[in-house]
């Protein structure tokens, strides 16, 4: 997969390395870097994993590693939950 000039992509970069982080962090955070991600319009055509500059929605020019092309929102409504499905009928019964 490659970026196309002017098309929406997502880049990421290390905002702070693990050793540059704030003091007094919990163990699980201490050992990992702070990663930043942003979407924007590709300024050049490069393969996934290559460095790329993008123009963000606010018009800023930011540079990072190309991680996605035409990034898609995949968060959903989730599968139905049995513990919730019983609530409505039970409450209506209570009110009857």
């Amino acid at each position: 997969m490659k970026s196309e000039v002017g098309h929406l992509v997502e880049i990421s970069w290390v905002a702070l390395g693990a050793t540059e982080r704030a003091a007094h962090l919990p163990e699980s955070s201490k050992v990992v870097p702070v990663i930043a991600r942003v979407k924007g319009f590709a300024q050049s055509s490069v393969p996934l994993g290559a460095d790329l500059s993008v123009r963000t929605f606010a018009g800023r020019l930011l540079t990072g590693t190309l991680i996605d092309v035409a990034p898609c929102h995949t968060h959903s409504f989730g599968r139905p939950q049995p513990e919730l499905l019983i609530i409505g009928p039970l409450l209506r019964e209570e009110l009857r």
Binding site: L16, S29, H75
Partner: peptide
């Protein structure tokens, strides 16, 4: 939070997304 980010983009904002940590303030 992914949903909240989506909504920001829908209104035309740049969304700078970070991993966990108080350093968000520095960014």
């Amino acid at each position: 939070i992914l949903e909240k980010g989506r909504a920001c983009e829908a209104y035309g904002a740049e969304v700078l997304q970070l991993t966990v940590g108080p350093e968000l303030f520095a960014v």
